[in-house]
Amino acid sequence: MTATTLPGSRRHARPSPRRPLGIVPTVVLVLGAIYTLFPVSWVVIAATKSKAELFSTATFAPGTGLLSNLADLFAYRDGVFWLWLLNTILYAGGGAVLSTAVSTLSGYTLATYRFPGRNLIFNLLIGGILVPSVVLAIPQYLLLSAAGLAGTYWSVLLPQILHPYSIYLARVYARAAIPGSVLEAGRLDGASEWRLFRQVALPMMTPGMVTIFLFQFVAIWNNFLLPFIMLGDDHTFPLTVGLYTLLAAGANQPSLYNLIITGTMLSLIPLIALFLTMQRHWRTDLSGGAVKS
């Protein structure tokens, strides 16, 4: 993201006394970029290697097996990979939409209304941020089992809808982005509370909602433990759990490394595409929030 601004500033090659650190920030950012992109590039290169090449050729030498890896992966158990991909999109997309809706409404309510117990609810939510979701997975499983929902799509969707951190974000954002006077003016004009939320608050909160959506989408996309515990039927697995069944194939079966790596690479593509298309909103959001608060 930052890369787009840096070359521009360097083109005015006047020695500038206003930048005492000189090239240091660029170097730090480039190092950061290498640090994050290095594993990704490994995945991309390893995905091109055939079974025989994977452990015998140099780490960063591209192999010749990409097409056969893809063919093997798509043929694996009659194309179950596509089913896992669809499941993941359903969990991540559906979960993120529902979570964004709940978070926005709750955040808006907490930010604009005064009612008894508001601070208590908010403090409980803050406390919820501190509880890692890993700790909750097994209790959630036992609860949903008691409700007869374990193993269904809902068992993965429901626990991820309520996300304290997203509600916190929505509250902070609503507070900064929606001036109280605008709501007052709407009320004087006779708008109902629901209409105020729909037509006044929601448009103002859109950038914040995009942020929450992206956060949740990525979190659910990468989530492993919850679906691993909740789901028994392999036709409901998301990619993370599905690919794991290829890795942990039992003590006496070889792991299908080249299929796993190829599958991992493919599962990155939707995330990258999502970020490239939504990036603009995210930037507006961060600056917008900063100016108004």
């Binding site: 158990r77 097994i138 499983y141 036992l142 089992s145 008691a146 374990a150 193993g151 691993f228 515990i229 028994g232 039927d233 392999d234 036709h235 759990v241 794991y244 069944t245 890795l247 942990a248 194939a249 039992g250 003590a251 079966q253």
Partner: peptide, 25 residues
């Protein structure tokens, strides 16, 4: 109906949890 699982210790932990919760295979 077959449900293909990840093998090894994790499979055992998952089965024990499911049995405890009352819905094992």
């Amino acid at each position: 109906t077959v449900s293909k699982q990840a093998g090894g210790d994790d499979a055992a932990a998952k089965f024990l949890t499911a049995a405890k919760a009352g819905n094992p295979p």
